[in-house]
């Protein structure tokens, strides 16, 4: 299983919206690295949902329910379908992740603006532990 992180502006589409919708098409990504990551997602992979803007926090987990397909709004780009998995016990902020030395290599720390990022299992577990601490 692979782990990912997808970023969203909560005012546009939040984790609560995903919880309400159960599933959604994750489209609108217009960055080449992010597109490559979307294409690398496999059914059953888990993805952190990260709220941008003022929140800047990992807030929940989604599951990849459908592997990549052309973005309905622009066939040049890719989209996936994700399903709601769970809300984290408490949000894990970017600042708290940055303050952890062992997370220095996490994409979120090195290239925060990338909208779809890969996450290692160690990073995934560490963020989960942070959310439960």
């Amino acid at each position: 299983m692979n782990y990912w992180l997808v970023k969203t502006e909560p005012e546009t589409y939040s984790l609560d919206d995903l919880a309400r919708d159960k599933k959604t098409t994750w489209d609108g990504v217009r960055n080449f690295q992010a597109r490559s990551n979307l294409k690398g997602m496999k059914k059953g992979d888990l993805a952190f949902v990260y709220h941008t803007g003022d929140e800047k926090s990992v807030v929940g987990i989604a599951e990849i329910t459908k592997e990549f397909f052309p973005d309905p709004k622009d066939k040049e780009w890719a989209a996936v379908e994700i399903g709601y998995k769970k809300k984290l016990k408490k949000p894990v902020t970017l600042a708290s992740i940055k303050s952890e030395k062992k997370m220095a290599n996490m994409y979120l720390v090195r290239a925060a603006r990338l909208s779809v990022q890969s996450v290692t299992k160690e990073e995934f577990d560490f963020v989960m532990a942070m959310s439960e601490a």
Partner: peptide
Amino acid sequence: RTFDANGVMLVED
């Protein structure tokens, strides 16, 4: 473009 210390491109906008 943002690169890591090894010159691997992390993100391009």
